[in-house]
Structures are given as C-alpha cells and as structure tokens.
Design a protein around this nucleic acid. Sequence first.
RNA 1: UGGGGUGUCGCCAAGCGGUAAGGCACGGGACUUUGACUCCCGCAUGCGUAGGUUCAAAUCCUGCCACCCCAGCCA
Length: 566
Amino acid sequence: MNSNNDPINPTTDDVSANFIHDLIDEDLAPGGRFAGKTVHTRFPPEPNGYLHIGHAKAIVIDFGTAEKYNGLCNLRMDDTNPSTEDVEYVEAIQNDIRWLGYDWGGRFYYASDYFPQMFDFACRLIEKGLAYVCELTPSQIRATRGTLTTPATPSPYRDRPASESLDLFRRMRAGEFPDEAMTLRAKIDLNSGNFNMRDPVLYRILRAHHHRTGDDWCIYPMYDFAHPIEDALEDITHSLCSLEFEDHRPLYDWVIEHIDAPAKPRQIEFARLNINHTVMSKRKLRILVEGGHVSGWDDPRMPTLSGLRRRGYTPASIRNFIERIGVSKVNSMVDYAFLEHCLREDLNQNARRVMAVLRPIKLIIDNYPADRNEKFPVENNPERPEDGVREVSFSRELWIEADDFMETPAKGYFRLFPGNEVRLKSAYIVRCTGCKKDADGQVRVVHAEYDPATRGGSTPDGRRIRGTIHWVDAATAQTAEIRLYDNLFSVEDPDTADQEIINHLNPDSLEVLPDCKIEASLQGCRPPEAFQFLRLGYFCPDNVDSRPDALVFNRSVSLKDSWRPK
RNA sequence: UGGGGUGUCGCCAAGCGGUAAGGCACGGGACUUUGACUCCCGCAUGCGUAGGUUCAAAUCCUGCCACCCCAGCCA
C-alpha cells in the first residue's frame, strides 16, 4: 500500500506507534534480538471461514507493521486441521486481503507445505527423549491432565523407549492405527500451572481429506507444534497474534528451542477487536448464516469483510478505523459509531452527491406550467468543486420525502408546512399551500407555489430560507429498491448477554423500501461506486442484486442528523 | 484455589518520575442552497484501590480489589 494514496490521511497511513513497535524497536536496536535483521511478519488465517473485521485488525497490524519497518509480511494458510478447512475459503481470503489493499508479493504459503519437515522435527524430538507416543484415549488424557491446582498424572507411556515411540510414530504416519488410538506428546512438565506444558499433544491421527495434500497424511500436527515451525521456516521475526495465545508462548518457545529451529521468531500478543452490537467469531457468524437469519456471509449486516464491502464500506475507511483504534492488550469493545464515523469521513470526501427520495410523496407546484421543463446545474460534490456539476431535470410535479412535510409542524421544524417557504435544492423557493390526503389520512400530495425570482434557489431580495430539501422530478425519476440497515443485535454485547445470540437479534435490522424515486443520473451505476443521497446518507448499488434496469441500493451509513423537535 | 494477562473520561487510547495528548460519543455556539460537512467552545484536581518511597508518582515499591484467558487428539 502506498502511504500517499489515501485521500484522507496522506501521511498517516502507517500503523501508528504502539507497544508492539516499541518491542520491535528494542529488538532492532544494536545488541537487540534482531539487530540488523529485516522485520518479517505473517498473517496466518485458517481457511475455515470468511474473514471479518476482527481479522482486518490482524491484517493491518501484520502487514502494516512490515510496511512501517520496510519489512515483509507473508500470507499463510494455517491448514493443519483438514476436518474444518476447505479450499473454498482460500480464494475468498486472498480476495478480501487484496481488497483491503495489501500485497504479499508472491509469499503465499500453506502450513501443509511443511508437513514433511514437521514430521522430521517430531522424529528428532522423539530421539532426544522430548516426545513420546501416548496410547491414552482423549477422555483418558483429559482425566489425567490434572486441575487448576493439582498436577497432571504421568501417562503410562511417558517413559517408553525413544526407539519404541519412533517406531510407533512412523506407523501412525503409515496409517496402521485408527483415529484416536494414539498421539505424539511432548514431554515437558506435568507440574506446570500452565496446562499447555503438561505434555501437550503434538500430533493426532486424523483420517480426513486435506484440501491440498489429499490423503497423503493421516496424522496432522497440532497448532502449538506447527505454528512455531511455520514461523521459523519462513524466517519470521515477529509472530503477532491475539491474547488467548499468551500462555501458549512458553510452548512456542519450547518448540523453537528444542527442534533447533533455523530461526527464533518472537511471539507478541495483542487484544482482539470487538465491536458492540455485533459478534466477532466465525462460529457465531456461522450460526447466523446457517440459521437463515442473514442472507449469507456477505449479508450487508454482517461484520465480514465481504458483508462490509457489499454494505458499501471502503477499504480506506476500514484501514483507517483499525489504525485509529490503536493496539493494546486491553480487552475492549469499540463503538460501532466509530466505524461509521470512519466511513462517513471517507465518503464525505469522495462520494458524488445525488438526489433520491426514500418515502415519496408528490409535490405539485400549482403555478408552474405543466408543459414546462428546466434543467438545473447541481454540484456533484461541494467538497471537491473540481468534480463539477450535472444537469438535473425539474418540472411541475416532483417527488419529495414524506417527512419533509408536516401538516402541523413540530416546534423547530423548518421544512414544508402550510404557509412556509422552503428551498428546493438548486431549483426554486416554494411556499406550501396545503396538502391532500388519501382515505387513510395519509398525506399523498403537497401543494405549493414557486417564486420565479428565485431560480437556482437564490434569494435576490436576501430573504432567509431556513430549509432546503431534496427532490426528484417525477417526469424523469427512476424507481429503485433501497435497503436500510440497523444493528444486527439489539444488545451491545450479544456474546455475553446470552449464549443464545439469536434471541438478541434486532428484528428491525433490515428495512426494504421497494418504491424509491431516484434521479435519472443514477441510471447504470454499478458497485463499488458510492453516492451520498443528499440529506439521507451514503448508498451504493448492491453488488449481488442490483441490475442496470432494476437498481438496488444499500444504505452504507446514514448522515448524522441533529434534528429533533424542540 | 494454580498459571497467564489487564485495569487512565460513556467508548477507544497516549503517557515510560516533573505535575493527565488525541479521536469517537455527548453538550453548547458559528457557518450553511445537505438540520450534513467545516469551525470554535465545553467535557478526568483525576489515572481500580489502600498504603509507602520521593521536593515531585498515572508512572517506582507493597498489599488488596475487579475483570479476561487456560484443563480440544481446535486454531
């Protein structure tokens, strides 16, 4: 990512300083652990689901840190558990990372590529008396692991001769034993207060078809054994991961030390990202998808990168968000409002303004000739005058927003109400003369008279017009479907409020407006183009359902609105 | 109860012994042909808590308290 191509933050696109960078600075300093070395990080997703914004934090930290130090960052599929992984996710993961704006420069690896080396390292560990084949069942292992306060009891196989373990391990690999018959375990410390050190399992027998290695293997390494090896083989200097791996670090270091690894990466842990009113675990997101509570992994309400992309979030806004929330070791919950702020900040600068009416009612300008039509120039983006203007058609009948009219105005309301003047954006000042309602008492038509002297919305006499509203010429309007979104969950923290997250779903998280009126210039627009619908918010064509002849828009985020009755 | 972490404004987060940055949110005002944007102003005598060291402590020491993670042949 070029640090100068961000229109919002031309000079602060790098990850800002944080405790990780302090540690790296120490490592790089003369006499430091990695003095003279190139900083090398990695992003190691497991291909068992779609990436979400929590992963974006890791991605920005991993790739951003490498960038900051002019180092390298590898992309590596951590595919050591074929029972949950699938090639389907591999491509999606790469797409999402590229979309965010990061490049791994050809250094795309699979943990499974290292299976042969891992097997060799394991054999060496056995020869050194540091690992043994254990024939305890899963439940027996659990039963002998001890408790918080009592140590583990030794496996009866703990002290079998290395030669015997080596033979069994090779036969495990050869497929001579059924799943769960035995494991390879490290021999470390049964008294440790850290469960990870109580003879952790290094390899298990697992007959599952691997998406890359097929049926070559029937034993697979555990994360704790595989990860440090992957890092070491790739000459990673800093292995950045989340907090829950903190007490795995002694084991990580143990593996690095005892396999005589070609490099000694340093693991540093940081806090995961949590955002209120949503969930951030693949498991829970999967519940939403498989339960049909959302339309899929890319439902615009989902915190997945594909969902955010479909919703209209830009890569820059997400990167900016991650950079600005900072990096620390405090379990935290970031306000969704801050993510929205970052999107607005980007789109305010870059989105073309356009007029659209979500809940249309007719405005008839009684003193405007029925056969007349004018074209008014309207600026495309007041933030960027160089973007110019477009011609917008105007005639006697217009669509306006239902809540831009009140028959009896609330206190402080300065839009359309009988007797009041309002400016039709870039067109004319009109005075409301009344309204017509349907049988249900709903206002269907508002009547007004325009002031010919106010062409373009100007007031030659200098009179002050408080309200300016948007409109769409009924004669040339297009109809579109617009989807409005709200929080997926009605509670701040659906993770802890209840295990049954479904009970906390916000029933109003999606509102579909099938009959919106949009200005003609929107015809043919395609994602990922973003628009500001004047006075309403930022919208973008849906990247799944929108068609040139049947536009569908998603509201990415509303505009802030400080209006409330006084 | 064992081990590993963390506690600075409603939410993030700087701070690294010299007297509490910044952003979001919120409140007030200015500007406004978007009730948007922008711009001003306000927003922790206080840094989990109790002591101690020091001329000086959010920063050092000690003791408490709270919260998070760990007993998968998941990652």
